[in-house]
Computed example of a mutant assay.
Amino acid sequence: MSKGKFIVVEGMEGAGKSSAIHVIEALLQQHHIEYINTREPGGTPLAETLRTLIKATDHQETITQETELLLMYASRSQLLANRILPALNQGQWVIGDRHDLSSRAYQGGGREFDDEVMESISRVTLQGFKPDLTLYLDLDPEIGLSRAKARGELDRIEQEKIDFFHRVRNKYQDLASKDSTIVTINAEQSMELVHQDIINTVQQFITKQG
């Protein structure tokens, strides 16, 4: 049995990750590829509890940036060990709604943690594991946040100031430019064009798998 592949969809609030994932699901179904979905933070019972702690706005104390960072990686560790790796080893593909790149962008870029700190925590937690393909949906933070606000109430991180999100985007773009497994999709295009870019990218990736 061949090992499965891990495809991740990344991007800021309002980038259209959910609809992108639906597009990928449809394509995998067309190719009769068995898959599961995950999301981060979350994806296992314990990881979902950590997600609630990270995103809640009603804490009686301030969540420090260090706590946020460590909770993100604790959640990711649980998900990797209990869902992602078992599925891949069984030959299933995994579609991830966010992964390590999110922490590099939000905590590394937005919170301005040093690259060496981010690399050290990632190395301990993931031990070199990384997605086979990442689709980064890029758009202006102000456009994304306006879309997110239209969806409903913003979570704790989504309520950060706009400068935070500009740092996040800059880090996303910087990391994507240095990694050939990350494909940047212009999420400011029409939905039809965004979806076509996703289909083209994932179809090419599937074809390469033979």
Rank of each mutant, 00 (worst) to 15 (best):
L46D: 07
S75H: 06
R167S: 00
L70W: 03
P86E: 02
G42Y: 00
L145W: 10
A81C: 09
A74G: 05
L193A: 15
I24R: 05
D174Y: 14
R123A: 14
I157M: 15
D132G: 07
L85I: 14
R111Y: 11
I206F: 04
E34F: 11
T201N: 08
S18K: 11
Q209V: 12
Q30V: 06
D115A: 13
D58S: 14
D174Q: 15
D114N: 11
P41C: 02
E116F: 06
L193P: 00
E160S: 15
R76M: 02
G16Q: 00
M118R: 08
I21Q: 01
K178I: 07
K5G: 02
S122Q: 12
E153Q: 15
N37T: 13
K149A: 09
A150V: 07
D179L: 05
I157R: 08
E188G: 09
T49E: 15
L101V: 03
D115C: 05
T57F: 06
L69A: 07
P45A: 09
N200R: 13
V202D: 02
I182C: 07
R123D: 12
L85W: 04
K161G: 12
T38Q: 07
R98Q: 02
V8R: 03
K3E: 14
D197K: 13
L126D: 03
E25P: 04
L71E: 04
